[in-house]
Amino acid sequence: MLALQLLVDGVGKGAIYAALALAIVVAHRSTGLINFAQGEFATLSAMLTVALTGLGLGVWPALAVAAAASFAAGALIQVVIVRPAMRRDLVPVVIMIGLYVCANAIGQLTFGQNPRPLEGLFPAGGLVFGGIRVQWSLIGVILLQAVVITALTLFFVRTKIGLGFRAVATAPEASRVAGIPVERMHMIGWGIAAALGAVAGVSLTNLGVYVESHMMTTVLVYSLAAVTIGGFDSALGAIVGGAIMGVVESLVTGLVPGVSGDVGILVSLTIIVLILLSRPQGLFGRERVARV
């Protein structure tokens, strides 16, 4: 029974890991870089949402505005910082770390040190069946990620820009020849990734986490593990990987004696190392020549 309860809780967390993992995958597919600051961007988005609700906006409109603002900020960062760095040897990796620290510091500077709760997106209360409690917010968070993922899939498959984005991710040179504005696609990719992060960050608050500058630190680690499991270019892999990591975290920290929440990070570390050693393209990724 405990295991089943943990499983349910794990799926909820997993939905958030999946959302952030998807953001990482979208940014990676557009520019070939792992954005280590993706989690911190999400934190800033959540902070912005808190600020907007403080101005009297409802939590849903606040999320929408924050997602739009995150899109713009992500696109801007791609143009100003990432683009000039892209053609260099390991520089982008270090720049991503720099972004991480900067974003974290901005969060602390603007939001302060005190954690603050965010109003729930979904009604309080929940269901109990067979001894297992399921909060409405948990169901809501999972549904919200499902809606976002569906919308994103439709965007990439059905729209012209989505098709152009996938073309650029497949073959940037050929895209240029076909007249597709490659740079604009990179920009859009980072924008979408940041907006996805906003949804992930605000969703996290619906699982009882307060908004503060370190709220996404462990989420980023689990999401990186999810991306590693799924393959750095696979959206489906990110979703499945996120769900796996959510459940693994929940079961390990809930069932293994002496393992508290934070040490779950070491499980991620082990999984990342093992997967990168045995199957670097992930479970869903296609094998390809390493691009460093």
Binding site: A171, S175, A178
Partner: peptide, 17 residues
């Protein structure tokens, strides 16, 4: 310079981008 991961149909649609 075709897009190997995209379908033939999608490749053609990209022509009119």
């Amino acid at each position: 310079g075709t897009f190997a991961d995209l379908t033939v149909q999608e490749n053609l649609r990209l022509g009119a981008y």
